[in-house]
Design a protein around this nucleic acid. Structure first.
Length: 508
RNA sequence: CGGGGUGUAGCUUAGCUUGGUAGAGCGCCUGGUUUGGGACCAGGAGGUCGUAGGUUCAAAUCCUAUCGCCCCGACCA
């Protein structure tokens, strides 16, 4: 009874990073494991990932891609084939050096020195090299191209500062790897897949994103060009939600992907790679969550509707449960977003308030309560997660079922509108260095506070300026937006001439 | 890898300065009353105090070593 007003403490405006961790815990999404930097994804969190996988996989298939699977281990020498790639990943690779254990004589185990591998294996941080080596064997002729393959996999990057879903040593993702006959075709593929990601962000995750290309300094190691989608979360920082790389012929040359062209000449293929990860779950939490926990966009909610029976007395319990089962069955026969509606019936013997709060914290889009009084009146008590937790409507069962798909779409639209409003309110055009510095400097130095946002400002295209800004303000160029028009201006930092605005922000 | 901090029950922690049988809250289990917005009462289980050594009649407490974790840096497609 002496509970605070909000389910999550601290609130977002008090301490956003701590709020995030508390939400992950309260929503039962994931927890830190005994393995450093590695998380356990719990059923509710994994359910979100499964829904994301279904959505993305459908979009990949619709654009002509097929799934395959490549090895977790990569021979050390493969990594060395592409110089920039080595530079980018060498410092965070897990390395396998032995294949057998033996007793250490003290009750423990140790790698058997006799079993040392002649060539160490690294655990994949990304699979360009192993897939490139494989494609080299598959491709002989221009007739073997394009290769359009995706894999769902886990990867390992030994990060120094892990954070659940946002940056973990091991994470789940998909990586698409394609090989093409021409540069233009590969560039088209890179752009197409970025478009798929932007569509997915908007239509599944209710996230508006900026699309654009990375500056040279922020590019994927080994890429000719890196395209990205950037989302704003509620502390106004940017998060890279997906990337699509045009790799030119760099990896084809490193891996020997060669083919005989239509002109009967030996040529190297043009390759791309593109990926999104479980980081998307963290992005959704931070973009849509409130001080009561997660708010899930309906299309990625493991359960879209939860029915909570209110059955205090044994004599009405059977009737209430029967009504709940009947409603659940009818709802499951409905569909939303091309899938059967997902309904959970919470029959646990717990207080109604406790159950309701659990589902609020987990972010279920729609909650339905059915009790003896509803049976008498033929109505339901319905609450939406995008509205206040006390706000309920009381439709009849028929009305509710008939309108459920529209209701879920309304919730999606409301989340998208809210996220768009937040992003637009904190995306500003800046002209002067003073304004730029002020925008990215918290008012109160002693206490962390939410500040800044996205700044569209002119940049002189020099790596020096980019580095200076990063050093001074921890602000980076998130992308050069596709829709940024060519216009004359002066670099917000150096004052030198500039041709277009780029997107600056602090990032995760 | 540098600087600082910290390890006591599933979780949060008190006790450590000044050595003397390990305490609480939450959670969990049982029974009862409850359940329409985070319940209450009664009872119960659960700890070789991170690990190894040392000092001492006696160590959670003092000393040494070691391991883990957290924060700040560095690093981070």
């Amino acid at each position: 009874m002496s509970q605070p007003q909000n389910a999550i403490s601290p609130r977002r405006d008090e301490d956003f990073p701590e709020w995030y961790q508390q939400v992950v815990k309260a929503a039962d999404l994931a927890e830190n494991s005994d393995v450093r930097g590695c998380m356990v994804i719990k059923p509710w969190g994994y359910g979100i990932w499964e829904a994301m996988q279904r959505g993305l996989d459908g979009l990949f298939k619709a654009t002509g891609h097929k799934n395959a699977y490549f090895p977790l281990f990569i021979p050390l020498s493969y990594m060395a084939k592409e110089a920039e790639h080595v530079e980018g990943f060498a410092k965070e690779c897990a390395v396998v050096t032995h294949h057998r254990l033996k007793s250490d004589g003290k009750g423990g185990l140790m790698p058997d020195p006799e079993s040392q591998l002649t060539e160490p294996l690294i655990v994949r941080p990304t699979s360009e090299t192993i897939i490139g080596a494989t494609y080299a064997k598959w491709v002989q002729s221009y007739r073997d191209l394009p290769i359009l393959i995706n894999q769902w996999a886990n990867v390992v990057r030994w990060e120094m500062r892990p954070r659940v879903f946002l940056r973990t040593a091991e994470f789940l993702w998909q990586e698409g790897h394609t090989a093409h006959e021409t540069s233009a075709e590969a560039i088209g593929e890179t752009e197409q897949m970025l478009g798929v990601y932007a569509k997915f962000a908007r239509e599944w995750l209710a996230l508006p994103v900026f699309t654009g290309e990375k500056s040279a300094g922020e590019r994927f190691p080994g890429a000719v060009n890196t395209l990205c989608i950037e989302a704003m979360v509620q502390d106004r920082k940017a998060i890279q939600a997906g990337t699509s790389h045009f790799l030119g012929q760099n990896f084809a040359k490193a891996s020997g992907i060669q083919f005989v062209s239509r002109e009967n000449k030996q040529e190297h293929a043009w390759t791309t790679s593109w990926g999104v990860s479980t980081r998307l779950i963290g992005t959704v939490i931070m973009a849509h969550g409130d001080d009561d926990g997660v708010i899930l966009p309906p299309r990625v909610a493991p359960s879209q509707i939860v029915i909570v029976p209110v059955a205090p007395k044994p004599d009405t319990r059977d009737a209430v449960f029967a009504a709940c089962e009947a409603l659940a069955a009818k709802l499951r026969a409905q569909s939303y977003g091309g899938e059967a509606i997902r309904v959970e019936l919470d029959k646990r013997d717990l207080g109604g308030g406790q159950k309701s709060w659990e589902w609020i914290k987990r972010g279920v889009p729609v909650r339905v309560e059915i009790g003896p009084r509803d049976l008498e009146k033929g109505t339901l008590a319905v609450a939406r997660r995008d509205r206040g937790h006390k706000e309920k409507s009381f439709p009849t069962s028929e009305e509710f079922i008939a309108g459920i798909a529209a209701t879920l779409q309304e919730i999606h639209d409301a989340l998208l509108a809210r996220a768009t409003a937040l992003r637009d309110a904190h995306t500003v055009k800046l002209e002067t260095k003073e304004d730029f510095i002020a925008f990215f400097t918290p008012k109160n130095k002693d206490k962390a506070e939410i500040h800044g946002g996205f700044a569209l400002a002119h940049w002189d295209e020099s790596a020096e300026t980019e580095a200076e800004i990063k050093e001074a303000l921890k602000v980076t160029i998130r992308c050069i937006p596709f829709d940024s028009p060519v216009e004359d201006g002066q670099c917000v930092w150096s004052g030198r001439p500039s041709r277009r605005r780029v997107l600056f922000a602090k990032s995760y």
